[in-house]
């Protein structure tokens, strides 16, 4: 099985400050969809910035598809959706915005247009292609940002709070969009535990810069004692099972 992400002893601290990430080690295999959960300030976003090479680790090893991460090197195999989508939208039209990464990959015009059409079709935003992304609704902006990344064909897709400020309809659209991507390796940080439950087949619990739990989403998130000790709650759809378990004990 191919290793998509291999992290060994990863530590990160800003100069003269306590570490934000402390000696984390884990491996994500190709095709896995991993949910990253944990309270606010657990180090989720910092971890993403390390994986994407924006921050330099203080110590440890970080490999993506057996290739060490070098900061400042463009690597289209990794795509990231930011929590604040507006930070990601820079071009005057949706079409140009999706094209932005493709042009930087050095693709030809025909292929760029083809990829734009395909991705827009997939995300259901074809009607928005000629609109300025800045004036779209929050949900539409999220789909545009995602299209801009998906068009580049990332082998590892990273999403930071993809459902924050989405309404129920857009949230459902996002789940339906991600659901059939069976081979797509994903790493999703979210407070929306139901969303993690629906989209992921593995979950990592991060708190205080350390991995506290790693396993099947229903098992980890259904375990009330683990969840509560890290300031989280068992999602509703699992809480009935958890209470039944506890009563049986």
């Amino acid at each position: 099985m191919t290793e998509a992400l291999n992290i060994q002893g990863l530590t990160f601290a800003y100069p003269e400050q306590a570490p934000i990430i402390t000696e984390i080690s884990f491996v994500i295999n190709a095709g896995e969809r991993v949910g990253l959960i944990g309270p606010n300030g657990a180090g989720k976003t910092t971890l993403f910035l390390l994986i994407t090479g924006i921050l330099q680790p203080t110590a440890g090893r970080l490999e993506i598809f057996s290739r060490p991460v070098k900061s400042g090197v463009f690597y289209p195999a990794v795509g990231m959706i930011f929590q604040h989508t507006a930070d990601q939208l820079i071009c005057p039209s949706v079409r140009e915005d999706i094209a932005f990464g493709l042009q930087n990959m050095g693709l030809g015009n025909v292929e760029i247009q083809q990829r734009i059409e395909e991705t827009a079709e997939l995300a259901g935003i074809t009607a928005l292609l000629n609109r300025p992304p800045h004036n779209l609704s929050g949900g539409e902006q999220r789909l545009v940002a995602l299209s801009g990344i998906l068009a580049m064909g990332p082998r590892l897709l990273i999403m930071d709070e993809p459902t924050s400020d989405l309404d129920i309809r857009f949230r459902r659209r996002l789940i339906k969009l991600l659901d059939p991507m069976n081979d797509q390796t994903m790493l999703i940080a979210s407070h929306d535990l139901e969303f993690v439950l629906e989209t992921c087949n593995r979950v990592l619990l991060l708190e205080g810069g350390e991995i506290q739990a790693d396993g099947d989403p229903a098992e980890v998130m259904g375990n009330g004692s683990i969840m509560e000790s890290h300031g989280l709650e068992v999602p509703h759809s699992l809480s009935a099972t958890w209470h039944r378990h506890r009563n049986e004990d």
């Binding site: 910035l49 994407t52 924006i54 400042g72 463009f74 289209p76 990794v78 795509g79 990231m80 930011f82 604040h84 507006a86 930070d87 990601q88 820079i90 071009c91 005057p92 932005f100 990464g101 042009q103 930087n104 990959m105 801009g148 990344i149 580049m152």
Partner: peptide
């Protein structure tokens, strides 16, 4: 905000601030 936008652009292959990338910078400023 501006810093995050730059980061996002870098992840999509923006080569950094230079004369050649003036158009991208104009887009970012806009």
């Amino acid at each position: 905000d501006l810093r995050r936008t730059h980061t996002a652009a870098h992840l999509r292959g923006f080569k950094g601030i230079s004369l050649i990338s003036l158009k991208t910078m104009a887009n970012v400023t806009g």
